[in-house]
Design a protein around this nucleic acid. Sequence first.
DNA 1: CATGAATGAGAGTTCATTCAT
DNA 2: GATGAATGAACTCTCATTCAT
Lengths: 238, 238, 238, 238
Amino acid sequence: MAKNLPISGRQTRAASSRKSSVRTARKPAQSQKRDAARSKRAILDASLIEFSTYGHAGARIDMIAERAGVSKPLIYSYFGDKDQLYAAALREAYVQIREGERDLDLDHKDPETAIRDLVDFTLRHFMQKPWFISMLNTENLRGGETIRQIKDVADIQSPLTDELRSLLDRGVAMGVFRPGIAPTDLYISIASLCYFPISNMHTLRAVFHAPIDDAWLDQRSDDIGEMVIRFLRPDPKD
Amino acid sequence: MAKNLPISGRQTRAASSRKSSVRTARKPAQSQKRDAARSKRAILDASLIEFSTYGHAGARIDMIAERAGVSKPLIYSYFGDKDQLYAAALREAYVQIREGERDLDLDHKDPETAIRDLVDFTLRHFMQKPWFISMLNTENLRGGETIRQIKDVADIQSPLTDELRSLLDRGVAMGVFRPGIAPTDLYISIASLCYFPISNMHTLRAVFHAPIDDAWLDQRSDDIGEMVIRFLRPDPKD
Amino acid sequence: MAKNLPISGRQTRAASSRKSSVRTARKPAQSQKRDAARSKRAILDASLIEFSTYGHAGARIDMIAERAGVSKPLIYSYFGDKDQLYAAALREAYVQIREGERDLDLDHKDPETAIRDLVDFTLRHFMQKPWFISMLNTENLRGGETIRQIKDVADIQSPLTDELRSLLDRGVAMGVFRPGIAPTDLYISIASLCYFPISNMHTLRAVFHAPIDDAWLDQRSDDIGEMVIRFLRPDPKD
Amino acid sequence: MAKNLPISGRQTRAASSRKSSVRTARKPAQSQKRDAARSKRAILDASLIEFSTYGHAGARIDMIAERAGVSKPLIYSYFGDKDQLYAAALREAYVQIREGERDLDLDHKDPETAIRDLVDFTLRHFMQKPWFISMLNTENLRGGETIRQIKDVADIQSPLTDELRSLLDRGVAMGVFRPGIAPTDLYISIASLCYFPISNMHTLRAVFHAPIDDAWLDQRSDDIGEMVIRFLRPDPKD
DNA sequence: CATGAATGAGAGTTCATTCAT
DNA sequence: GATGAATGAACTCTCATTCAT
């Protein structure tokens, strides 16, 4: 179900993708047609890629249909219209990151390790599943019009906030963290530090000629962990 | 230079501005030379708003012409095509933020104050001139296609990097900062912390129900300053 | 045979019935034979409503299937395609009005009463079964393409013409009607006077602000009867 | 400005009109391009034909553009969307018939002649400009949705009603008409009798095998005039 | 210098119709 | 006999861009 996201090294639409030929190679596997669940999933995956690569206005239903290997009308029959498809893709991006965070199992690690692991996971998820960042950028560019209408989006987030709260409490009890830090603010700080360098990779490259590669990523992960830990650490005089 | 920015409380395009065609008969060319410069400026300002509000694909030349009070052919005669107009607007966003940073005069402040002032300025600029963040988001969504072609964009940035380098050196010499911090990394950290909460204001609101208002901003500015300073501070044992 | 007719106070399609998908799990086939007839009947009734409400081009097979409570393929298997379904609905409209006229039993009434009864029935049938008028309008708008292919449509009409002929003859013999009136022309005159105010109800309302309600209908029925009788009456000098 | 309306002997869309070739013959007369008024007029004329021939749902913007010799976007820029274009065509149909009625100059004819002339004109206008009847049928099929929104449609009609009122008054004063006839009812009666045989020409042909030709028309005009006059005539005993 | 008029190419969406079970 | 799944072909409408003045 995982697939590559052509986020860097993308060309202008006109230059790429004219006649995909993916369609031709599809017929033989005739056994798996007429499977509603599979079609729906394929559409959702393709939408995530298309919307995150080209934005809301730039995304093309034609391309989504082609990538999903279905016809356009099927998309409309499952999702209604472009906006609702976009909403489904946006929600899916949140679901995916939360699944990863849940697997981190922060509750059973010592507080400092837990923080560093969360930082590392966040940075790498942003890097490896770039559609999350892209979907968020797109949605914020649109003024949050859509996310306001996704009813359960706060519920998707809340388990992590709960984990962070108990994590902070444990750290304070153990004397390794300062008191008075809100879990939400902590998460926003971590997200901020992980988000920007990846989200803004291309402009940073142009402006600073900084290479955003694996080595840089490792180094940056350490730096961010360090920064957060130092921020959480109790003042020395205490 | 002044313009209204409809960044928050934005409506769907369909709901607003349908066919206003307010364009009344232009006033009879007072001085040909001045009008040309004025038209060009008006087009640039309108582009900045349009592109940052709706993204590259979502921006409409019609709307830019209307907002600038000129005809569409004039835009084409001045800027070539949509992509070149977009490039001009993107460059303009960078020019504006650098002008603000230059006025900060970091060289003549004590290092910690300088850092806190830079944080505060950055946060507030992002907040008050939202088209900067929006343009960067848009450009990164597009894979940096355009910024790579703007030749002098690194030059626009370099004075700040130089200032930061000497600021860090001064801090180290005075014993208030750790050595070994790269000015670029420092800037990226500051930018990260300031960028994310504002860029992602709308999704954060939906996910955390966090109010992003002036009070929050003041508090956040302090927190970020604190975070950066703690990161720069020498270790206690030294 | 009973069905709701939404002819007045109709909404735009977009406003109504979007995706009701009320189609709950069909009840488990009680008697295969009966169900087939029932399904066919339901499809025909639904078609009459749909075609008369939205016209030939505006009618939607989806809607007919939904209203009839059957699947679309079933419609195709019974009726062939949209055009043939339309033809069946059109024929049905004629069958219905002739059934009503037969029940009038004109042969056993005195001539003037018979005429007035026919006028009254015609006006009220047009009013109460509006799909008849709508189907005729639709078909004439299409240039009669379909009715020309319905072989027995003239047969459906002929009994009434025969009745009218003998009615006119009786009236002439009794000295209450002029001679020389053709039954076809008489029927066309009556139909004309009854058809127009109802068929064109909506435009008349807009143009004359005339209320087309029950009181108006009673008055109109009298007027039309009067007009026809005066036309049939022998000249005074005779 | 007058053009033929292919109302009878029409084919299915698929069979006709594929590549018009009207376009090719158009270029030479290059002098008349870029004329907004002419373009608008051409679009309106073409719309009247298209909408009246195929109905609201059946009309195709492509065809209108082709017949008018303009591009589709031009239509949208002048008229907004299909509904507004339809509204303009509907209004135009009313304007045209009123222009004809005004030229009849009923005020200066003796009452009975005036009535007969009005009948004759109405019947012939319905016959010769079939788009009037077709537009009315179409609009009534749609429930009058559009005509209710045309503000001045009642004004277009009122001059005729005024003329009819004074005509009836003159007739009563001269002793040739009964008193108590409302001008609106009179007009509706005349319109009814003229409308139906032409509007329903195709179904009548199929049902009665009646030929609707020039001879029939002359005869019918006389009959209708006679019917109306007899209805207006004072009762003999008076 | 400036623009009203016009359009080619394509986007989202719909709908009659068929396939596979 | 009946249907959920799927689609080709159109259709309305939009938008960057150019023409003619």
